[in-house]
């Protein structure tokens, strides 16, 4: 669910459309956008305080066979929340493996590639200190 929440709207929806098989479902809670107050810790480790809110869209649905899917995704895309909840529900059905290989694995690969690229660029800006030799050693 974390992977789905963090994914870019276009990445998730693209993979979901390619997967192509939207099962029949009924809404338990139709998509709704709201705010979540993000908290931090004083000094990074102490008591908590409120930093500010972020937008989140959530929904819940159930498949015709009864599996319930929930989604809490970052941002305001209702179609992303719907796809995420359907994927969550499908992961409890016989389609688990198909969904994992068609959607979750590629999504995880995209995320990890994006992270690694930033980490590699950051590593290239790491300072190598050197001391000039002076005096007799």
């Amino acid at each position: 669910m974390g992977l789905l929440a963090r994914s870019k709207d276009a990445d998730l929806l693209g993979l979901w459309r390619t997967y192509g098989d939207t099962p029949a479902f009924t809404w338990l809670r139709s998509p709704e956008t709201g705010g979540v107050m993000v908290r931090g810790r004083m000094g990074g480790s102490g008591a908590s305080f409120n930093v500010g809110e972020m937008t989140v869209t959530r929904c819940s649905l159930s498949l015709a066979e009864g599996q319930v899917g929930h989604a809490y995704v970052q941002g305001r895309s209702k179609s992303k929340a719907e796809a995420a909840a359907l994927i969550d529900a499908l992961m409890q059905t016989a389609a688990t493996d198909a969904v994992r290989s068609a959607i979750l694995n590629p999504l995880a690969a995209l995320e990890s590639e994006a992270r690694n690229t930033r980490a590699r660029k950051a590593a290239a800006t790491k300072v190598d200190f050197f001391t000039l030799a002076r005096g007799e050693d």
Binding site: G34, G35, G44, R58, R118, K121
Partner: peptide
């Protein structure tokens, strides 16, 4: 705009020690 959003709740305090640092 913010005032029109329902509040879903509050996050667990973020772990800045686990930050993927750009800088």
């Amino acid at each position: 705009y913010r005032t029109t959003l329902p509040r879903f709740g509050a996050s667990v305090p973020v772990e800045t020690g686990k930050m993927a640092c750009d800088r």
